[in-house]
Design a protein around this nucleic acid. Structure first.
Lengths: 340, 340
DNA sequence: CTGAAAGCGCTAACAG
DNA sequence: CTGTTAGCGCTTTCAG
């Protein structure tokens, strides 16, 4: 049977209080006693029960991570970083796939609460803030990552999507493209809206406009992206460049282009977003807007852990900057730009 | 403050024992009483504490999942399935990235034990069985996935790697290739050894042999794979087809081939393993040996949960069969086969 | 059908 | 410096 604090106390000939003190390094314990207790603990293979200590008000040293889908490369990389950092700080992370469903999200939060996780990182991009409100109301330490903080007082780490949109657009314009297409994932993502805002801003400055029919939405899988891309690409005057809101979608676009017999990047330039593994795998390698995923992960984790430990009281919003990574899926325009 | 069972009992005018019974649907409780208690619970927003009930010997409804790296597409897909199934069955999963390190593995297991997880799924491919022995000794429900079960009595779900090796080889031979190259990840993976055994078996049957210099190893990232592939491809009589032990490595091989000016698949055929997202993304789409990842995930989870719940007593070893998925990275041999 | 009471393993005053 | 004791929130006999 697993040894308890009582067994240790008995073996060491001291009280459980003493043992507890040496475990937690609290109170004043005699050198000899401490060493003796330590020895017994080792001998018995004793390990303090996190469950029992959590019941007396201490932490469970566990945090919950909600993402739409860990199988999505962006989130799996993010999850990896968060787990890494959490581990360094002594926290386990339980993973939850919400599929962007408000119901699933709420359900997970309820369970995490029952399990007394010390805090929660929300990485899902839902507009609906019910869950978040609930979390803040019950004073669960919470931090958002890669999603907008809807004017609530909550720790947040995200990137400047507006800038991301601008960077992508500027790159395309510099290459001579004026007729641009856009592929969004949909889901009312405020990130995507921000990026589009960045796009429009740059376009306007250059006396260009984005045509609504060149904006296509509702693509989650690569197959869907391909289908949707077909729509834009088979129009009368198709765009000469497409900006996809993530690398997976960009790959879908490239598949579609290839199927239509278009050469990449001579006939059609494609730029993605995120700079996940997919961007370097794809052929041609994908030009994309890079998110500092590693930093996003470590910084949210740090924020959350600090809050859990009560090491800081004011909430922060950290905005990291994306950057353009030029690979081979974009090039100068070849065809004569079509007049609109 | 969060309501406890006492608050509910008081409000409902019953004892905590009664409340406990309605929560767990145990004992015999009067219809009226039950409904009243239920109503109060809802009214108070009461949620039973998993921590407290775990202390009294019940489950924590949490399982630990050890994988080398969730950011690796194969494992992220697997993790997704395991979490899905776990969630269906009422279990949370805490994720642990071992980087295939025996130390990290041991450390995680220790922590999971302290946290009283109900069971552990091992998805890391280490040869060293110390951790596993420890787990079995302390009678923690354990299940292995995608790794060999070293003649120990433990629940296991894996694929027939030997068959996988055969399938890949047969495919290549049918296309006329006789000079084959192989890329392994290394790490003493028994899976890879099994696959190679399958390869050799088929080769021998066909009076062919695999040349040691065409086996390259120690590649974990795509970049490393590319470098290693360069070695094989720049030999005097390079193979006409390469079998990579996973889709990531296969992509590395393709990168190398392309850099050397070889056409895919006319000049060099490439076949991968796993059939992850990467296989469909790559260009040309990758021919690969598909692992039934979804099934692997749900089946280990089921096995583990059953063991946790004590629903079965005998251990099982389930072997799933891989299958060949032909895409466009392999084709019939074009060059005259070089005589060796 | 319902309640009293013991206890799960540990922490935190408070004494000594 | 060390021990006593009262819980933490819940489950589980065992009485009634």
């Amino acid at each position: 049977m697993k040894p308890t604090i009582y067994h240790v106390a008995e073996q060491a000939g001291v009280s459980i209080a003493t043992v507890s003190k040496v475990i937690n390094n609290t109170g004043r314990i005699g050198r000899e006693t401490r060493e003796n207790v330590l020895a017994i603990m080792k001998e018995l293979g004793y390990e303090p029960s996190v469950v029992a200590s959590a019941l007396t008000g201490k932490h469970t040293n566990t945090i919950g991570l909600l993402v739409p889908d860990v199988a999505n490369p962006y989130f799996s990389e993010l999850a990896r970083r968060i787990e890494d950092r959490g581990h360094e700080k002594g926290f386990s992370v339980v993973i939850c796939n919400t599929d962007n469903g408000i119901e699933k999200e709420a359900e997970y939060v309820k369970w995490l609460h029952r399990k007394q996780v010390d805090g929660i990182i929300l990485g899902t991009g839902i507009q609906d803030n019910r869950t978040l409100h609930e979390l803040l109301k019950q004073e669960t330490p919470t931090a958002l990552v890669a999603r907008d903080s809807p004017s609530l007082q909550v720790d947040t780490v995200r990137i400047d999507d507006y800038l991301g949109g601008r960077l992508a657009t500027e790159h395309l314009l510099e290459l001579g493209h004026t007729n641009l297409g856009f592929m969004l994932g949909g889901l009312n993502s405020s990130s995507e809206e921000e990026r589009l805002r960045g796009v429009r801003s740059v376009m306007t400055t250059n006396n260009l406009s984005v045509c609504e029919k060149d904006i296509v939405t509702d693509a989650y899988t690569i197959e869907e992206a391909k289908q949707q891309a077909m729509k834009i690409l088979t129009q009368a005057q198709p765009p000469t460049a497409i900006f996809a809101m993530n690398d997976l979608l960009a790959n879908g676009v490239m598949k579609a282009a290839r199927e239509l017999g278009l050469r990449l990047p001579q006939d059609i330039s494609v730029i993605g977003f995120d700079n996940t593994l997919l961007a370097s795998i794809s052929e041609p390698p994908l030009t994309t807007i890079a998110q500092p995923i590693a930093d996003l992960g470590t910084q949210v984790t740090d924020l959350l852990v600090q809050e859990i430990l009560g090491e800081k009281t004011v909430k922060q919003r950290i905005v990291l900057l994306p950057s353009l990574v030029v690979r081979e899926s974009t090039t100068t325009i070849a065809r004569t730009p079509v007049q609109k």
